[in-house]
Nucleic acid binder design. Sequence first.
DNA 1: CTATTATTTGTTATCGATAACATTTATCTG
DNA 2: CAGATAAATGTTATCGATAACAAATAATAG
Lengths: 339, 339
Amino acid sequence: MSQDHKKAPTMADVARLAGVSSMTVSRALRADAPASEETRKKIREAADQLGYVLNSTAAGLSSRKTGFVAVTIPSINNSNFADTVRGLTDGLNSLNIQVLLGYTDYDADIEEKHIESMLRRRPEAIVVTGGAHTPRARRLMSNAGIPVIEMWDLPDSPIGHVVGFSNRETSRTMCQRLHDKGYRRIGFIGGASSRDTRGADRRRGYEEAMRELGCEPRVTAYGDPPITMRQGGGALAEMLETWPDIDAVLCVSDLSAFGALSECRRRGLQVPGDIAIAGFGNYDLAECAVPSLTTVEVHAEDIGRRVAELVREQLSGETDNRDHVTSLIPFEIIERESA
Amino acid sequence: MSQDHKKAPTMADVARLAGVSSMTVSRALRADAPASEETRKKIREAADQLGYVLNSTAAGLSSRKTGFVAVTIPSINNSNFADTVRGLTDGLNSLNIQVLLGYTDYDADIEEKHIESMLRRRPEAIVVTGGAHTPRARRLMSNAGIPVIEMWDLPDSPIGHVVGFSNRETSRTMCQRLHDKGYRRIGFIGGASSRDTRGADRRRGYEEAMRELGCEPRVTAYGDPPITMRQGGGALAEMLETWPDIDAVLCVSDLSAFGALSECRRRGLQVPGDIAIAGFGNYDLAECAVPSLTTVEVHAEDIGRRVAELVREQLSGETDNRDHVTSLIPFEIIERESA
DNA sequence: CTATTATTTGTTATCGATAACATTTATCTG
DNA sequence: CAGATAAATGTTATCGATAACAAATAATAG
């Protein structure tokens, strides 16, 4: 139970106890390195007895393999990104590579800080969300000499590989779908700032689609990203104030869509009778809400899995980061009750 | 744009360019170490020019300060834990300490694996969720020679400090509240396995309270933890099958509570008229749902902040881990429309 | 049974920074 | 302005492992 007192045993300590050289210990504790089963056992016992835990800081310095990949996502508390991280983590698990996560809070400056401090730890690859970075962040990543992957977006000038989809296209498609169903006075609810670049892209797609369809765009920008459920409700109220005749609302995410839906219920508005509502992300919530939400499924976990694959390929030298491979992860519209 | 080719510049490279010793570079790049403003500037310029990024792997090996804390949480996609991580991250930020996160998926064996691989990286402290660990995990943490903090629970035999609350008590209190409101045939919806020890504690609290109140406990265990919204709906259906006369349901989390709520809506049951529903966690969802959910607010972010404080105290030597400080974070019942 | 090859183990140098100590340069004091 | 104190910089050893090379031991072939 004593702490801080005795310093942690080192490989040399284990070697001494087992009566071998520390190089043999190093080898015995690694699965791939050659060592006889006999000594392996002996060494494992000695290690156990001392409570030895490998110091991967030292190992990393020496071998130049730190065994982790740096990843930044905008928010920890977002089902979609969580799914991506899960796919990524699972995919890298088999390579014995861990994920070091940084949350940017949709802020490029925070992202830059994270990127820098993560790079200090010498990750074997870096994965970032989106294509909008500070110039310095771009430079840092480009010069790091490791694979760089941007995900969840299709940047105009990618740094390395890309795994994502067109957010613009998702809302264009959804608008088209709403139009096909006969809705004409379609509004858009999203965040007030463009910090959430994917949200901003969805809005852009909406505006383009509306113009192409000959409809007037009606945007209610409300709150800082990520726009919450409650803000979704507030936004709907504001929207009804401005355009009382609205007949459908496209929301930047399922969360705001649910907020809007709840606001409708409180006001006694029928969904989709009086107003249709569509979301984005296909959160659990979308399926479970009453009425269930029409939304966009983006296969977030697949994004993570595909990123993991690319990381693996690049680390094993099969691919070069300069190839700028772009993996499109297809999205799909999930039609449910709300629209 | 070239990668992999030139190896990253080292401190020695910067020193050479700036015409000083590498020790001076080391000092100049750290805020606390002594160095003249003049050389600082000169060195920063040289570092910029070379695109130098500190290698904190090497720094950590030498200084025995890795600048991060290991944290395990059951699930990344859980609003409560996300809040705790936010509080923790923010709190440690001022100390320039990062958080390395591991997700255990409510599995003690996975937790053990994470703990081991995290300890290899020599964190300056380790924070784990709950008090249920494998014997080996306990041993590893005890022997690591670093502060250990268990959170979100009140373990019977804590390893070091504890920051949490009694999950049992939350559901006892909620049961009492429901009873006060006149409900008597109160059911409980939770996961089928005891892997989620906090969920199991809540169930235990429910059962105790029911017995004390002279009511029969009615538990529907459904699905692996964490029980989802959809499973909450399924559980409610099952519960109504078994006990059609139920008049209130206490759910292990707001997610399952929302699922149950939706199921009620689909069946045309009034909430709280026909059935009252109470959740746990005070997710955004709870406030936004119609009807809004009565639930338990546990101040998850405060837990994280308090953990960060304790880490700071221990690293600065103000507290000793063997003191076994327990910080109780008070919870509260949020009464809303659903019960 | 010797020569040859494969397997296992050991030795030494090194990864890139910082601690600890030594030295030089600047600043202050009477 | 000498002597003492403080501030800035340099030197050397070290953190704990692994790579690269070398040696010893075991296995195989002729």
